[in-house]
Each structure stands twice: as structure tokens, then as C-alpha cells.
């Protein structure tokens, strides 16, 4: 049994299945984070007092994290471009850096959380920290998910390059779309939580 259009493009839509699938998934993710952003805005406008992000949170650390995540997004797209140019070695390198950047992001995040807990700032402290921990935590989970997928395609999953190169390129493209989305969410989270 062969499912059509797993690799080759559909004549009408011009897409292969997984790409349609990932975009639909990302659409649902837009609604998920959209609902959380809505909640954040409503809680903030409704609150009698709400601290500025820069009063409570560590901006330099978050800026570094922003740079790290954007960099990982670039290396992700470069790893895809390398495969398109049939350069597997470069792919390995760029994908490796992507995974590494993801891990650095998490480590920095862990330090940030640790500092908050030391100062007895917990999700239950007030709704500012509740929002902060929920949004960054959920984003962190997405980062972890992305790292697992990317690490798999860097390691054991990359065997597919030898057997079905086109399918492998597709997989990297799809994984990339997810990873860029995670980056995109952070691009909005960073100013709205830290800088405002």
C-alpha cells in the first residue's frame, strides 16, 4: 500500500502531504498561543497594578536567548539549503549547531527560572509571574520537542539521506517549519513579557 504524495507534489495543491500537515498544525498552534496572548492582555488590562517586564525580569539574559534562538533558526534553514545543494557534511554541521543552540537556550532559561525561584517568585506569586512562567514554560516545552526531533534527524534519522534523499529533505523542511515557528513565538514573547 503506497500513500500518494508522501514525496511528490500533488498536482492541484502543489504540496506534499507532510507540508500541508505541518502548516495545519502550526495554524492550530497560532490559535493556542493566540488564546494565551489574549488571556495575558486581558489579565494585564484588568489588573489594578502590573509590573513592567524590565522591573522584574532579566533583560540581558533574555536578549542573549533571543540571539541564540534566531541563530538556531538561521542554521536550521541553512541545513535545509545544504541538503538542497547535496552537501550532507554541511547539513550535519548546521543541524548540529541548531540542536546545540536549542540546548543553550534551555540552559539559559533554566538559570533564569532558578534566579526567579531564589527570589521566591513563583507562578502563584501574582498573575505577572503566572503569565511569565506559563508562556515561557509552554514555549520551552515546544523547544524541547523541537530539539528531540532535530537531534533525531541529526543522528539516527539522517540515514534516510542514503535511501530516500528527497523524502529526507522534505522531513528537514517540515522540521524546520516547526522550529522557525518556535522562534517566531519567542520573537513575540520576548518584547511582550520582558520589554513592556
Amino acid at each position: 500500500m503506497q500513500i500518494p504524495h508522501t514525496i511528490e507534489h500533488h498536482p492541484e495543491t502543489g504540496l506534499y502531504n507532510a507540508k500541508v500537515g505541518i502548516w495545519l498544525f502550526l495554524a492550530s498552534e497560532v490559535m493556542l498561543f493566540g488564546a494565551l496572548f489574549t488571556s495575558y492582555i486581558l489579565l494585564r488590562i484588568g489588573a489594578p497594578t502590573w509590573p513592567h517586564g524590565w522591573e522584574e525580569l532579566n533583560i540581558p539574559l533574555a536578549t542573549v536567548n533571543t540571539v541564540v534562538l534566531i541563530a538556531s533558526s538561521v542554521t536550521m534553514v541553512m541545513s535545509w539549503a545544504s541538503l538542497m545543494m547535496k552537501d550532507f557534511k554541511k547539513y550535519k554541521m548546521y543541524m548540529g549547531i541548531t540542536v546545540l543552540c536549542g540546548l543553550i537556550f534551555l540552559v539559559i532559561k533554566a538559570f533564569e527560572y532558578g534566579a526567579k525561584f531564589e527570589h521566591h517568585h513563583f507562578p502563584s506569586t501574582n498573575n505577572f509571574f503566572a503569565t511569565y512562567f506559563t508562556l515561557t514554560g509552554l514555549h520551552g516545552l515546544h523547544v524541547i520537542g523541537g530539539i528531540i526531533v532535530n537531534a533525531y534527524f541529526w543522528g539516527p534519522g539522517s540515514k534516510m539521506w542514503k535511501t530516500e534523499p528527497q523524502r529526507f529533505i522534505n522531513r528537514i523542511e517540515v522540521a524546520g517549519l516547526y522550529w522557525h515557528f518556535v522562534d517566531l513565538v519567542w520573537i513575540f514573547l520576548f518584547p511582550s513579557l520582558y520589554l513592556l
Partner: peptide, 20 residues
């Protein structure tokens, strides 16, 4: 997804002690 978000928020309210 918005209900999933709401479910997560309520779960945090109950388990972690947030006040969404």
C-alpha cells in the same frame, strides 16, 4: 486550541496555585 490553552491555565490554577 483555545480550550486547550484554557485547560492548561485552569490546570495550573489548581495544581501550581496560579490565579488566572
Amino acid at each position: 486550541p483555545p480550550l486547550e490553552a484554557a485547560g492548561i491555565l485552569q490546570l495550573l490554577d489548581r495544581v501550581v496555585g496560579t490565579n488566572f
